[in-house]
Amino acid sequence: MSLELDSMYREVVLDHYKQPRGRCPLDRHDIENEGFNPVCGDEVKIGLRIEDGIILGVHSLGRGCSISVASGSMLAEILQGKTLEEARSIAEDFRRMMHGEITPDEADLGDLEALEGVQKFPVRIKCALLPWTTLLDAIEAYERGARAEKSTTEDPQLGGRPGIVHKNDERRSV
């Protein structure tokens, strides 16, 4: 098989795909958001349980291709015990790595580094980012609600998300 394929479907990626983490729905969650990729029909649902600003539980549900499922599984794993600020920072580093702006060595992304090879298949990058854009929109909504007196916060969204529409978004295509 091709080297390009092997660099995308690394063993660790296929492992997360075949045995995804975070598939058990949380009994209760403080944040939840659904993401949807209208290009391929992939769906994800990210939920977080938060106590004292720390993420104590994550679920990563939905249906999708190996890359979006593996990315969501890695999300569930890496976010355990992190603060929302740290979660945003990981999301941003991951986005930058997927767009080739930084190398895996320049960030601490754990298993997520294995998704770097997806870059060789540009149409698949949004599969990898879908769980993360869904997460960021969820965090943004949570913080708006939790700190209503602060009507503006910095925009934490991942830049340039062609083709990705969220279910809580009016722009959802038919």
Binding site: M1, S2, E4, L5, M8, Y9, C40, D42, G64, C65, S66, I67, F121, R124, C127
Partner: peptide, 13 residues
């Protein structure tokens, strides 16, 4: 066993 997106990427190679 294989999502259509994965099929299409592998077939493309």
């Amino acid at each position: 066993d294989v999502h259509p997106h994965d099929l299409s990427t592998i077939l493309d190679t």
